[in-house]
């Protein structure tokens, strides 16, 4: 893996380069912040070890500039400093550094901190891969727009709200919230197993076709289950499986595929059910106009303890303004994305 070392002191740069190369990294040295920023913009570097005080752009300023730009992937920054004390560490982290190393560094500590960086970056790669997979599955149905982006945000908000609820405090922690954000986009992955003639049919589905359509929950659940069995340590796969399998269940037992009741449905499935329906209601489809937020809200309230878990409905009501903001934000971004074409069309 490539590492960019930003250091104006030749000696420290040499010692750092030697240590990093011996650990197994491919090192490039930039002597100042401006040169470093040009390297980062090339997109080749995901790991940066930078000195704090340099002529021209300082390490702190470099952190800020890297963080302020849009990039294809996260850049992990370790700030190398001879400054000690909590105040300076906080200043560095506040500017966007992920970690810090005090001069003179010890190779073992450098190796350990680099490993943390690589692990964080690999998690990001995992997250992006999961989302790409979900987008791929969704791509056959061009009408859903940014459904996955919105849905994971709704799931995150609901889980976050439930984390302070006495009944769920011990179940829903930060990891649960992160995992539902990560895995909820996979809820409809089983649709890859549904024929185009049914998935893309413009009109109403027959009972038989709807029966086939319903199979997507089991197809998705089983697919993720087989992966989860091979990787029992990856608990997020179990949540992904539960969501794919149960997001169409209803707490009154009238849902599919198994007609589970109440708490028989995993909490993540109950959360995903509401998030999925809210987004479907507030999005435009060929067969319906978009409901406004209040209409969607009334419908959700009317389905309390029927389709939806009452606690999840309460969580939705507590955070409805955030739902509305996300719904509006993504619609705004979608408009921004098509504006250049619209302007061209007017020329």
């Amino acid at each position: 893996m490539r590492v960019l070392v930003v250091e104006d002191d030749w000696i420290t740069a040499q010692v750092l380069t030697n240590a990093l190369e011996r650990i197994g990294y491919e090192v490039t040295v930039a002597e100042d912040g401006d040169a470093a920023y040009r390297h980062v913009r090339s997109g080749k570097y995901r790991l940066v070890v930078t000195d704090w005080e340099m002529p021209g752009m300082s390490g702190i300023e470099l952190c800020r500039r890297i963080r302020s730009r849009r990039s294809a992937g996260y850049v992990y920054i370790i700030l190398l400093t001879s400054y000690r004390g909590v105040e300076n560490i906080v200043r560095g982290l506040d500017a966007g550094a992920d970690d810090y190393l005090t001069k003179p560094f010890q190779p073992e500590e450098l190796a350990m901190r680099m490993r943390v960086g690589v692990r964080i970056l690999s998690l990001e790669s995992r997250d992006l891969t999961i989302f790409a997979l979900a987008k791929l599955a969704e791509s056959r149905d061009s009408e859903t727009g940014e459904h996955l982006e919105r849905m994971r945000e709704y799931c995150r908000i609901l889980a976050d709200e439930l984390s302070i609820h006495p009944r769920y405090r011990d179940i829903v922690d930060g990891e649960f919230v992160s995992q539902i954000y990560l895995t909820s986009p996979l809820h409809d992955i089983g649709k890859v197993g549904i024929p185009d003639s049914i998935l893309l049919k413009p009109g109403k589905l027959t009972d038989e076709e709807f029966g086939v359509m319903k199979e997507h929950a089991v197809i998705g659940g089983r697919t993720l289950e087989s992966v989860a069995q091979h990787h029992p340590e990856a608990s997020y796969l179990q949540m992904a499986r539960d969501i794919a399998l149960t997001h169409h269940e209803r707490v009154d037992g009238s849902g599919y595929p198994y007609g589970l009741y109440g708490d028989e449905i995993p909490l993540c499935g109950r959360i995903a059910a509401l998030a999925d329906v809210y987004d479907a209601l507030t999005s435009k489809r060929v067969y319906k106009a978009a409901y406004d937020h209040n209409m969607a809200k009334e419908l959700i309230i009317s389905e309390r303890d029927k389709h939806f878990d009452g606690d999840v409905v309460d969580a939705f009501l507590s955070r409805e303004e955030e739902f509305l903001a996300i719904s509006n934000r993504f619609q705004g971004e979608a408009l921004d994305a098509i504006m250049p074409e619209a302007q061209l069309a007017n020329v």
Partner: peptide, 21 residues
């Protein structure tokens, strides 16, 4: 030497450069 992970050549080079500087 420990900081240079046992690489005598790098350690020598750094020492020479440091003294000159």
């Amino acid at each position: 030497l420990l900081r240079c992970m046992g690489n005598l050549e790098v350690a020598e080079r750094c020492l020479t450069r440091f003294r000159q500087r």
